[in-house]
Design a protein around this nucleic acid. Sequence first.
DNA 1: CGAATTGTTGAATATTCTCAACAGAGGTGG
DNA 2: CCACCTCTGTTGAGAATATTCAACAATTCG
Lengths: 263, 263
Amino acid sequence: MFPPNDHASRCTTCAIRHRSICDALNATEIVSLNRIARSRTVPAGRMILGEGQTRSVFANIVSGVVKLTKTLDDGRQHIIGLLFPSDFLGRAFRAENPYFAEAATDVELCVFPTAGFERLLAEHSELEHRLFQFTLTELDACQEWMLLLARKKAEERVASFLLMIAKRVPNMECSLAEKREQVHFVLPLSRSEVSDCLGLTIETVSRQITQLKTKGIIELVNYREILIPDLARLREAAYDLAGHASPSPLKAHKARRSVSSDD
Amino acid sequence: MFPPNDHASRCTTCAIRHRSICDALNATEIVSLNRIARSRTVPAGRMILGEGQTRSVFANIVSGVVKLTKTLDDGRQHIIGLLFPSDFLGRAFRAENPYFAEAATDVELCVFPTAGFERLLAEHSELEHRLFQFTLTELDACQEWMLLLARKKAEERVASFLLMIAKRVPNMECSLAEKREQVHFVLPLSRSEVSDCLGLTIETVSRQITQLKTKGIIELVNYREILIPDLARLREAAYDLAGHASPSPLKAHKARRSVSSDD
DNA sequence: CGAATTGTTGAATATTCTCAACAGAGGTGG
DNA sequence: CCACCTCTGTTGAGAATATTCAACAATTCG
């Protein structure tokens, strides 16, 4: 289907071709996007994008994990998002970048120059539409995470975090014999980074991991490598319905009726 | 400029005409949007949109404040966003609504039926572009708020909240003589709702408000009506650079170099 | 092997939450 | 107009949770 030239071949062998924003493009369009693209490798720990940097970088994450951080002037910081393979990095149509992007692991990027990418965006509304979809997904995740930060306890936060990682790291092993979903993966982040995701301290994260291990919900192969014998139990720990449900029927929605159901 | 028919006249007198998504439309387009629009009033406390509701409602907020909430199964809840006049309500291109929308005050909406609005969106890429921009702004605000929830102390959260309200409520009075920016406004939310915005309890919010009052940073006309004599002082309290800056030079960015500065 | 980094654990402290009592505002009916 | 009730907000005391500080253990790297 694709002519066997350099441009098309890179994309045909691309692991994230059909999950990234590129999936919105047809064969012709993908060649023109590929023409302006550059592959780039970034070692773990290196900055990719500075906070407030004037011109944005646009890139697909091909492999590895990128962390997006925000920092208060006194040094307190928070990881507002993680980007995994097939995710898109960069804020289109924004003069300034509102966060700091850094490689959490070694990262392979497919980088697009700002001007060229924004031109393609303007010419191909399908591409912009796809980017819009990605942004909506990011917003969903962000709002879900706010609930975690606002209302979940330390153990639930850590469990939720592991669950999130488990979902995005492709090492799922479904042992149907036991009807349990098992996962094992290598954490892309240090304890310090995990704590910056969860609004906790390193020590609290460490203690909660120990506790999950004690309860048998997770197993530590080594500090970074984690085995989850039964995802269902981790899910319970993440929402912790057991521990906090009963005491009192807390404030339920008092809203009377829906707009659409009357008038 | 607009022909004096019913459709156009509603828009020409519309208070949010040039701040809402409608600003992306020309005179002809706005007539076709207006043709499918319906004005609707929603009393305070009434539900507008259910969580997980299949078909979304789309609407401009004309006046009043709408709160968007998410709830954990055991009742813990969080307000993930507030919509003010000119903001847009509804998730385009999403089958299910990920939150619950409720009128915080009496609200005037300009409602668009789902199908018709999505058709307009598809036909006029300018409109989709504008909606994309709005979504990016929402994402920015959401990520900023995550930092608050993750890392700010109770007093800073309350101060940040008041600052956010002050920015969006149009009662700014700049007393140039004293070189101070004064604001006074009526809080659109109860203490309970404020606590659900900030991931705190009612009691903690109440105590922090009392403390801000004691420090002279805010003045309470009554429980809901607040006067801020000097915005600059509130800004300090919101970031609280004074209270937490000195003790130790906390973890600074250790990232080596930017991607663009080498290779 | 030794140094540096990263992670764990313990004890004391700080912050926020929970529970409980009370105060003020607003509304209703006599 | 006032007594009474309800709802919302405040305040206090004790409890729970997470943080801080400090020591130590494990891992990695040269």
